[in-house]
Design a protein around this nucleic acid. Structure first.
Lengths: 235, 235
DNA sequence: CAGTGGTCTAGACCACCGG
DNA sequence: CGGTGGTCTAGACCACTGC
């Protein structure tokens, strides 16, 4: 027996063992593995326990399960990386740096076509437009260009954004339930370089984000990170 | 009653209802919500069903659960976005484009310090170094600079990479179980511009990835995407 | 210590879908 | 049709941890 002396039958134990068999290629990609009932017998636990273990692995993309067809080891283990999208203030303070921000622009304006499309607006309605620089230890951290659908969120028009950045105000006041994210890279224009305090043409990471709440498009924002910014994750 | 006429007690039903109450701020961020037992009574189902529903919401970051303390609506709903990391060939063919690749460089070399660190090598060992351009409809798609820990994966030295790109060879032959990802933005150097067929100084999205298998560092790769490439995800 | 979530069980029924 | 996973249940015990 390669099993440890701990014979308790927890779903974690089962999951670890199955994961091991996959990574050691005891069960190879594409292979059909035993039914839940068989595994339950083998591991000496209830089928529900096996189900819990296998469901987790299927969610993680390691297994593919279909009724009647059974459970197979995924051919292309879909590698997933998960980003957490923190509030900018927390991201900066979490690094032990001093957080600050400065609003450069606040106006009502009809947004450009791409933003209109993302916010599902019809092109004649002016909405709130903000440009904000967030700083870490007084150095430019990220430059935010934000459009807020002030038709869906009229309260935002009376927000001062003096103590609370637009970012935090929205997190606090509006319950998001979804969004789109797009990463890209650009070279800094003269204007962007000036704001971020970098050289013309430096490579910058860009994140475009649109958030919605129950089919109402709330805000569309472009974050321009300072040069050298690296967004990291693991899986 | 706002409840639909469908009174079946499935965990999905419960989860949807709870999600609704959160998004409608019936239960506000920071609020303590009823125990599982109470909710089970309210929804007319078993506690296990409620548990399944709430566990899902906790995993998603919407709830915070602690024994004895109970379940609270998360103050800062941690927004997560999930990336799937497809095989490049599948990503290209999935768009209906013709996939191709060309290996520019294949050599054994002692990697630079940053790669050594990521692969946990000691600085004297030459390993496999590859530079590959992947094309979509014959146009440059992504330029890959890859270091493979050929000490951990000696088989790679006999791989031809004629039919199978380094990317796919590794996916097929080595069982990954984790990795690090870092996104950044750079401006194309003259050399990079030449390979990717773009202008000097254009902004590019860069993905650095290091994958491991059970504490063995397998490969470290830098992907330089063509200008205009956008990596998209939603949550 | 006692309340709360975490988990296991044995059995049951059902939905889906491959052969 | 029948095998497989998906889910529910009622009850039980346990592990944490706030009070």
């Amino acid at each position: 027996m390669l099993v440890t002396d701990d014979d308790r039958k927890t779903w974690q134990t089962v999951q670890d063992e199955v994961r091991l068999r996959i990574s050691q290629r005891v069960w190879k990609p594409g292979d059909l593995i035993p039914h839940e009932a068989d595994l339950a017998t083998e591991f000496g636990c209830a089928r529900a326990t096996v189900n819990r273990a296998l469901r987790g692995l299927a969610d993680a993309g390691l297994l593919e399960r279909r009724r009647k067809a059974g459970t197979r080891v995924a051919l292309n283990p879909v590698r997933r990386a998960e980003f957490s999208i923190p509030v900018i203030r927390e991201e900066i303070e979490g690094r032990g740096q001093r957080y600050g921000y400065k609003i450069f622009l606040r106006e009502m304006r009809v947004p450009p076509p791409d933003v209109q499309a993302r916010l599902q607006l019809d092109g004649t309605q002016p909405i709130l437009h903000l440009q904000t620089l967030y700083t870490a230890d007084n150095r430019p951290y990220v430059f935010e260009t934000r459009w807020i659908n002030s038709i869906a969120v009229p309260d935002v028009l009376s927000a001062e954004f003096e103590k609370l950045s637009p970012n935090e105000w929205l997190v606090r006041e509006v319950a998001f339930d979804g969004g789109d994210f797009t990463f890209s890279g650009i070279a800094a224009t003269e204007q962007e370089a000036a704001v971020l305090g970098c050289k013309l043409g430096e490579g910058l990471l860009v994140l475009d984000r649109t958030t919605r709440q129950a089919d109402r498009m709330i805000t569309s924002v472009r974050l321009l990170f300072h040069p050298g910014y690296r967004m990291h994750t693991r899986c």
